[in-house]
Amino acid sequence: MLNYILKRILMLIPVLIGVSIIVFLIMRVFSPDPAPIVLGQHATQLATEAWRQANGLNDPVYLQYFNFITGALTGDLGTSYYTKMPVSKEIFARFPATIELALVAIVLASFFGILIGVISAVKKNSIFDNIGMLIALIGVSMPIFWLGILLIILFSGTLHWLPSNGRIDPMLQPVAVTGFYMIDSLIAGDMDAFTDTLQHLVLPATALAMYSMAIITRMTRSSMLDTLQQDYIRTARAKGISEGRVIRKHALRNGLIPIVTVIGLLLGSLLGGAVLTETVFSWPGIGAYTVTCILKSDFPVVQGVVLLIATIFVMVNLIVDVIYAFLDPRIKYSKVKG
């Protein structure tokens, strides 16, 4: 087991180097010149050339890559062309917002997904099951940004129930300790700030959660259906144990194993969904910021963000695989696959 984990960690290194090369090529070789946007409407060709020279963009690409990778290894990701702030600062100022949103979304998705999935399986083919499955189907089919806009129109624009943008009322903003406002407001003991944070989270988290919830619902349902047909469930029923107890004590426990895996994997992919959700809700996170930076050709930022997201993604995958191996003794990882 330990060997397997070590081997997997070692395998991450070439993957991350590869990722950095891919993003470097896309940005530095194929993307448009950042100079005009950095220098604004007075960007003459002369000024543009001087700026490119000063920022090493006239160097050969391999040299630029070498400079980038040596910097990255020492923790220096460079400086944003546009704001002239260190990239690491730009990223970490926005990162907690995305993680907070993604975590709340996955919690929502898991809770409702498992709930609906279990009920659907237990009451198979009932009206509840049919409605649940319909919602799940629509959930995976709706563009996330469309859902987001519809939510804003309904709950903010028309009913005025919930805020439409941002993470918190700026007047209530807690002192940043962790960057997670739910935690920071609790540290500060400010319940108003905490509630306000939750209110701001409701709409974007719902939009982001919808897709994952639909997947979890369907997985739970089919996994539970499988489990309910197993011999030991029949035995339990035959022993006269109440149906509720059978489901809670026996079926749910075993049925949940594959769900845990799916939830872990969805967490990684939520980072992708965050790109669109953040754009719609003006959420100050890393996803929308990255899109802006791609369009501005802010190379250092894009390189930094992609490297960071890739690291997180492969780490999450690794952890999920380990948990899975841990939960399911049938899986042996003597041979590394993939």
């Binding site: 624009g157 005025h160 805020p163 439409s164 943008n165 941002g166 809700f281 003006s282």
Partner: peptide, 11 residues
Amino acid sequence: SARVVALNNGE
């Protein structure tokens, strides 16, 4: 549009 919602919403 989101700015308009924010204004009308008192944000």
